[in-house]
Simulated assay, not measured.
Amino acid sequence: MPTVAASVFVRNDNGELTPESARICGWSKGAPDIPGRNTNLPRENPRECSPMTEIPVDKLKGVFDLLMERIHTGKQVLEIDAEEFWSVPRDQIYDVYSEPRDLTIGALSDSWSYLEDMLSDPDRVVEYGFVWLSEVLRAIGDQTVS
């Protein structure tokens, strides 16, 4: 069974996929039916990944702002009762048909430190910051709902 790849598709102002987004990816045939998931989405180009999740950046920012407003009320510092977490390698995290191998251990303090470094020096901003931010946000979310 081919590896399932997760892709982020970026569209330009005309709604066309940018060149880096129009790449081939593998979607496993015979994926199980999941309620609410449409696996028969029309493709603009048969070489595109399908199905995909489209997330408008302005709405993503709106949701993030809303959640930050909610958590910011009354708190200046968030305390997270965890440090280490399991980290699934990028080439395995979206392959839900195979058990992850080569798990690693991440540290929230490291992820937060890298994010703080980006704040102190904007030249150090890297796209991997989204991964570090997701690790921190996951811990906040897990603690908030427990």
Rank of each mutant, 00 (worst) to 15 (best):
P2Y: 03
L137H: 01
M118F: 04
S113N: 13
A82H: 08
Q92A: 08
E135C: 04
S109R: 14
R138T: 09
I71N: 09
S120R: 13
T73D: 10
V63K: 08
G106A: 08
V131Q: 11
S87F: 09
E79V: 15
L137K: 03
V77K: 12
K61H: 07
G30M: 05
T104W: 03
T18F: 00
D102A: 08
I24Y: 02
C25H: 07
R138L: 09
I34W: 01
G141Y: 05
Q76S: 15
G141V: 01
E84I: 04
E99F: 04
I24Q: 05
V131K: 13
W112T: 10
D33W: 07
P89E: 01
S87R: 08
D110P: 00
I34P: 03
G36R: 14
V125H: 05
Q143A: 12
I34T: 15
A5Q: 10
G36D: 00
M68T: 13
S87A: 13
F9T: 03
L78C: 05
V77N: 09
D142W: 04
L133V: 05
L17I: 02
P42Y: 01
L67S: 03
S7P: 00
S7N: 04
N12P: 01
Y114F: 10
D13M: 00
E69F: 02
A139E: 04
N12D: 13
V126M: 14
A139I: 04
I71H: 12
W27C: 03
N40Y: 06
I71G: 08
W112F: 06
D33I: 14
S146M: 06
D121V: 13
E83L: 07
R124G: 04
R37E: 09
G74N: 14
V126S: 11
T39V: 14
V10H: 02
V57G: 00
T53R: 07
V88Y: 00
L137G: 00
R70C: 02
V8H: 03
I93T: 12
D65A: 15
V88H: 04
N45H: 07
E135P: 00
Q92L: 06
E48K: 03
M52Y: 02
D110H: 11
K61D: 06
L115E: 07
I140D: 01
S21P: 05
M52N: 05
C49H: 05
K75Y: 09
E116A: 14
C49L: 09
Y94P: 01
R11K: 06
A82N: 11
F130R: 11
M1Q: 08
L137W: 05
P89Y: 06
N38M: 06
K75W: 01
P51L: 05
F130N: 10
D13L: 00
E127M: 14
A5S: 06
T53W: 00
K59R: 14
D65L: 13
M68F: 04
I34H: 03
D91K: 09
E48L: 10
R43K: 15
E99S: 12
D58G: 02
L119H: 11
L137S: 04
S21E: 00
S98G: 00
G26N: 12
S50T: 13
N14Q: 11
L119T: 14
K29W: 02
V136E: 02
N14S: 06
W112C: 07
I34D: 06
V4H: 09
K75S: 12
Y94S: 15
N12V: 03
D110T: 11
